[in-house]
């Protein structure tokens, strides 16, 4: 059956929603990376720089995520002042708004404490308390989609864990890339040069672990769609099969296989393995790897949103003898 896009207005039209999903996950990931690097300072002072970079970058990522999700509304100001307007606590958009709002203070205060260099113990406590909020924020970017209930491409069992994992992965990539691009110009350059090899190695190992997890999740996702495709639909049209084809063989196939799987996952994976084996050109290899991972994370959000536009058309197409009455 021909895939059908019945929606007149789509979240991907101006890219604001996919960007919100990406930046929301990134802000959460950067915060988690910052806190982890904060605790890793005991091993090497260079991690303090990683923590600072990640903590500072989490602020614009979080702020832009909020800006983009507000801009996409027909009435943006009501989104900005959502506590006064959002009233349906059965809607995941309301929870998403609160997750965005409540994770903000942790991200901002944690970065501010790094900036002023005060109260390191308080900073770490805020970091530890803030991590669940950051994860909750990343989960809510996925639940915004899954909560719409009728989209076969947005299963609740896959998207939250996929988005949290991707958020941490892109968080590591952004922090790593920023470190590589800036460390020569930072005051602690001498110290950083000494520990750079160790930091890159840690980043590479982290990336490999999260990439392998992402591959497993994507494999589960494809299996989920194809398994449902084997199940006859009571509507006479199996939309899981339609969406599966749309992703792996249809209009999204190039974006998915070449963009996400190829450039966004497999090439960075190979680069990481080469880096570990060869132990040469670490900075160059890591730089390319991190950049590709960021592109992959962005593509993932766009592909997920694009795929969600293919929806079941519910009228009884098989309905000569069985025309269901809706509602």
């Amino acid at each position: 059956m021909t895939p059908i896009i019945v929606m007149q207005s789509k979240w991907s039209d101006y890219g604001f929603v996919p960007l919100y999903l990406f930046l929301g996950g990134l802000a959460a990931g950067l915060f988690i990376v910052a806190v982890c690097a904060d605790f890793a300072q005991a091993k090497s002072k260079g991690y303090a720089t990683v923590a600072k970079l990640a903590a500072y970058t989490a602020i614009p990522a979080w702020a832009l995520a909020g800006l983009f999700i507000a801009i996409h509304l027909g009435r943006p100001w009501r989104g900005v002042f959502f506590p006064w307007y959002f009233s349906n606590y059965g809607s995941w958009m309301v929870f998403g708004g609160w997750a965005l709002l409540l994770s903000g203070p942790f991200i901002v205060v944690y970065a501010a404490l790094w900036y002023f260099g005060i109260y390191p113990k308080v900073r770490r406590v805020i970091g530890i308390i803030g991590i669940p909020f950051a994860i909750w924020f990343a989960i809510n970017t996925a639940m915004l989609l899954s909560g719409s209930q009728t989209v076969p491409f947005w299963p609740r069992s896959v998207l939250p864990v996929l988005f949290v994992n991707s958020g941490v992965l892109t968080g590591v990539a952004v922090a790593g890339l920023l470190l590589l691009l800036t460390y020569r110009y930072l005051p602690a350059v001498a110290e950083l040069k000494q520990s750079m090899g160790q930091i890159i190695l840690a980043g590479t190992v982290a990336v490999l672990v999260f990439e392998l997890i992402e591959i497993l999740i994507l494999a589960f996702f494809l299996n989920y769609l194809s398994a449902l495709a084997a199940t006859p639909s009571r509507m006479g049209v199996n939309m899981s099969a339609v969406v599966f084809d749309y992703l792996v063989r249809g209009p999204l196939a190039v974006w998915f296989w070449v963009g996400l799987v190829g450039a966004g996952i497999l090439i960075p994976l190979v680069l990481g393995v080469v880096e570990l084996i060869v132990r040469r050109w670490e900075e160059q290899l890591a730089g390319v790897k991190f950049a590709l991972l960021i592109v992959g994370g962005l593509l993932l959000r766009f592909i997920i949103v694009w795929g969600g536009e293919v929806k079941p058309i519910m009228p009884p197409l098989s309905g000569l003898l069985n025309p269901a009455l809706f509602g």
Binding site: V6, Q8, H72, R75, G79, M93, S148, Q149, P312
Partner: peptide, 13 residues
């Protein structure tokens, strides 16, 4: 508020 969420929830577009 024109968020478009109902557009995704509605099975009929």
């Amino acid at each position: 508020i024109g968020c478009g969420y109902c557009g995704y929830a509605c099975p009929f577009g």
